[in-house]
């Protein structure tokens, strides 16, 4: 057993893990943070996506120990001071979430995109989200949501 120390949504955590524990297992089974979902457990669907030091990772194929000393964000950590992140508002307003199973991963992937490219084109948004599968929406309303959030964030800045 090894001791993993890292920050999750601003909180310092210490968890005992072994060499084959994944980050997803730590989050779901040890910390009971269930927003990252087990869609495939093989790195193919994106439902387990989280941010690690701001970068999008698939937690099901991320070794837990690689989070040592890092900062992990799940969707529970997006709201600030009780205010939803504009992406959360936009997904709700634009019907970007249907069954909701892909939604936490989808919103985090969108956040990773907007942090890097605040004014993406629809094509760029599609490309950035291409690793996150959604079976319900057909993606149109997800891209609408991302574009609406980008717009809203740009307005808030100016």
């Amino acid at each position: 057993m090894y001791s993993l120390e890292f920050t999750v949504n601003g909180q310092l955590c210490q968890v005992a893990v072994d060499l084959k524990t994944t980050l997803l297992e730590v989050l779901r089974d040890k910390l009971f943070i269930t927003s990252p979902k087990v869609g495939c457990n093989t790195g193919d669907c994106g439902t387990c996506s989280v941010l690690m030091n701001g970068k999008l990772v698939r937690s099901c194929i991320t070794n837990a120990l690689s989070a040592q000393g890092k900062e992990v964000t799940t969707i529970e950590g997006l709201a600030e001071a009780g205010e939803l992140h504009p992406l959360q508002e936009a997904f709700h307003d634009n019907y970007g979430a249907q069954c909701g199973f892909c939604t936490p991963g989808m919103i985090l992937a969108s956040k990773a995109l907007l942090d890097e490219n605040p004014k993406p084109t629809r094509e760029e948004a599609k490309e950035a989200l291409s690793g996150n599968l959604c079976r319900c929406t057909g993606y149109g309303k997800i891209i609408d949501s991302v574009m609406a959030a980008a717009e809203q964030m740009a307005q808030a800045k100016s």
């Binding site: 979902k37 799940t74 969707i75 959360q88 709700h92 979430a97 909701g100 936490p104």
Partner: peptide, 18 residues
Amino acid sequence: KRYDGMAHVTGETRFVDD
């Protein structure tokens, strides 16, 4: 708006495995 939309975007929706 969806009645369950807010729970979806905040990660609060509890599926069976959750």
